[in-house]
């Protein structure tokens, strides 16, 4: 598997550490309540198709990356820096 890093270009999967769905960018406020926090921490859409998830270019440039991938085919459709995705305020 090869993954695109927005900074370094396409690299072998070995350089990256995976860390779950990109909803992790949408951290609720401290007072959001137990349902919101349960959803944020545990519940997932978990699509069998296109998803957005987080990867850390740990053995590269240390960028956290939001990959748009297809979980059924492993096709990679896009990659963006997590910091930019967060600033843009959208992960959907």
């Amino acid at each position: 598997m090869r993954l695109p890093c927005p900074i370094c270009g396409e690299r072998d999967r070995r350089e990256f550490t995976y860390s779950g769905a990109a909803v992790a960018l949408e951290r609720p406020g401290a007072e959001a309540g137990s349902e919101a926090w349960d959803d944020y921490l545990h519940n997932r859409d978990n699509p069998a198709g296109v998803t957005r998830d987080l990867w850390y270019h740990e053995q590269g440039c240390a960028a956290w990356i939001v990959m748009t991938r297809n979980t059924a085919t492993h096709e990679v459709l896009g990659a963006a820096l997590a910091s930019e995705a967060r600033r843009a305020g959208s992960t959907s």
Binding site: M1, D12, Y18, A48, T51, D53, R69, H74
Partner: peptide, 13 residues
């Protein structure tokens, strides 16, 4: 393999 997948197949690493 450490990434979300429904492909029922793995990768080399």
């Amino acid at each position: 393999d450490m990434y979300a997948s429904y492909a029922a197949r793995g990768s080399l690493p």
